[in-house]
Amino acid sequence: MAAEILLQTPLTQAKVAQLKAGDAVLISGTIYTGRDAAHKKMVDALAQGQELPFDVKDQIIYYVGPSPAKPGQVIGSAGPTTSYRMDAYAPKLIELGLSGMLGKGWRSPEVIEAMQAHGAIYFAAIGGAGAYIARCIKEAEVIAYPELGPEAVRKLRVENLPAIVAIDASGKSIYAEGKARYQQN
């Protein structure tokens, strides 16, 4: 494997343009969390003309619902959740400037179209590596929807969180390309 690319947030358009499907990256800086219920709330808020809990421009949202932190831990285990459940909401946020999503599994054609149109990257974290990824999270703070418990929106400071560029801004996907490369028959 080629050496990992060190990626510092915010994820500007200049950085987006350089990332290609299959690249291994180590993400450092601020990222935000949100999964099903938080996405629904954010998109509902927009529909009602309200502000989002944070400015999504050039930011990465991590699809995660961590387990409770033990005393002394910054956060509990925190691997990615399956991304397709956020597909209904993601295009709206991408339109508003969201440039990165971190999750696992395939995305819908609508999400990929929005990524191509507005310049966004879909990263895959290692699904199920919850204990490993928790170690890369140095600070965590709930910034919205605390009533959602594990699904609340958190602001995280991460260091060298490993991920793969699963789908790049040209629409190329490691899921399609990788499978084609190793498929037999």
Binding site: G65, I126, G130, A131, A134, P150
Partner: peptide, 26 residues
């Protein structure tokens, strides 16, 4: 890339065991 993923999973299981935390958040 696949070998790399398996390496992380081995390390993940080890961290979960030593720190007594869930290997996966789900």
């Amino acid at each position: 890339l696949g070998q790399n993923v398996l390496g992380i999973l081995i390390e993940n299981a080890d961290i979960a065991k030593t720190e007594q935390v869930p290997m996966c958040q789900d």
